[in-house]
């Protein structure tokens, strides 16, 4: 249950090809995250899987059966929307019961599942309230509850956390991850936030302009980005990308070095040198934005702990040679 295959799936809106033909394999029980900048087609891809949009060509196969022409209601998938999409005129209980009511599941079974879901999601006290009386996080949980009770083949999440404030987002991220561990159901999760992708996914699918740029586990993407786009997109703060003379020294068009892979030293002691601009002290780490390096406009460096450089200090930078990523003129990784 929960194996989804996309075969040469493409989507056009009029003359615009939003998704050129692509193939993708999602295994049973996997937590797959579609990540990419806004407008990359990740939500459209999710909606194609859901059946809320027709594919222009290609096949959507769910558990071995061609579901391309199957309406969304019959695909056995559940979706959690960005706006939660709760029914405002129904109580929490009725919201959660709605999919079971549509499936004509017997009342006592409905009741059992609602209570189970409510207990799991801390909603028991709120069952008789309406969505309007709930906080953002509670609404999110109701939306998840409504998805769980269907016992779907797979869960689809469309940027579910983007309407929550930062603190709540971290908590919900954990809850969704735990839910996945417990249910072991396939989940497909769309986000533009690479931190969410890195922390939650078994498998990340990086998308840009409808193309799959790379598919892999979070650490694969971190350590071996296949191209400049993935290199720049995955990781925070962003990887430093350097072109020109310095890159040529490595026989590459572009080289990339992550902020955490550069060591800092007092002036004179590094391979490169530059002047400290803004320093962000986080306690655990310190981020420096270094100017006047002759490499790129700004080089970001992440130094562990508290490092006492001031604005305007001249410092030395040393990249760790084995962790320099090399890319050719097309932006592809040089092995």
């Amino acid at each position: 249950m929960g194996r989804i295959t996309l075969e040469k799936v493409s989507k056009r809106f009029g003359d615009v090809e939003v998704i050129p033909p692509l193939d993708l394999e999602i295994d049973e029980g996997e937590f797959v995250v579609f990540v990419g900048p806004s407008g990359c087609g990740k939500s459209t891809l999710l909606r194609l899987i859901a059946g809320l949009e027709d594919v222009t060509s290609g096949k959507v196969v769910i558990d071995g059966e061609d579901a391309t022409r199957v309406p969304p209601a019959k695909r056995g998938l559940a979706m959690v929307f960005q706006s939660y999409a709760l029914y405002p005129h129904m109580t929490v209980r009725k919201n959660i019961a709605f999919p079971m009511r549509m499936a004509k599941i017997p009342e006592d079974e409905q009741k059992r599942r609602i209570e189970q879901a409510a207990a799991a999601l801390n909603l028991t006290d709120y069952l008789d309230r309406r969505p309007g009386q709930l906080s953002g996080g509670q609404r999110q949980r109701v939306a998840i509850g409504r998805a769980i009770v269907r016992e779907p083949a797979a869960f689809l999440f469309d940027e579910p956390l983007s309407n929550l404030d930062a603190a709540l987002r971290v908590g919900m991220r954990l809850e969704i991850s735990e839910l996945h561990k417990r249910l072991e159901t396939t989940m497909i999760y769309v986000t533009h936030d690479q931190v969410e992708a890195m922390t939650m996914a078994d498998k990340i699918v990086v998308l840009r302009a409808g193309h799959i740029e790379q598919v892999g586990s979070p650490l694969e993407l971190y350590h071996n980005p296949q191209n400049v786009f993935v290199a720049g997109f995955i990781g925070s703060p962003k990887m430093n990308l350097i072109e020109g003379e310095e890159a040529a020294k490595h026989n590459a068009h572009t080289i990339g070095i992550r902020p955490e892979h550069i060591d800092v030293s007092r002036d004179g002691g590094g391979v490169w040198s530059g002047r400290v601009g803004v320093a962000e002290h986080l306690g655990s780490d310190t981020f420096f934005h270094i100017h006047e390096t002759g490499l790129a406009e700004t080089i970001t460096v992440r130094a562990p702990g508290e490092v006492q450089f001031k604005h305007g200090d001249q410092i030395g930078l040393t990249p760790r040679a084995d962790l320099v990523h090399k890319f050719d003129a097309e932006g592809l990784r040089i092995v």
Partner: peptide
């Protein structure tokens, strides 16, 4: 933004 089915 919809499917063939809902359009018809």
């Amino acid at each position: 933004m919809a499917t063939q089915h809902s359009r018809s």
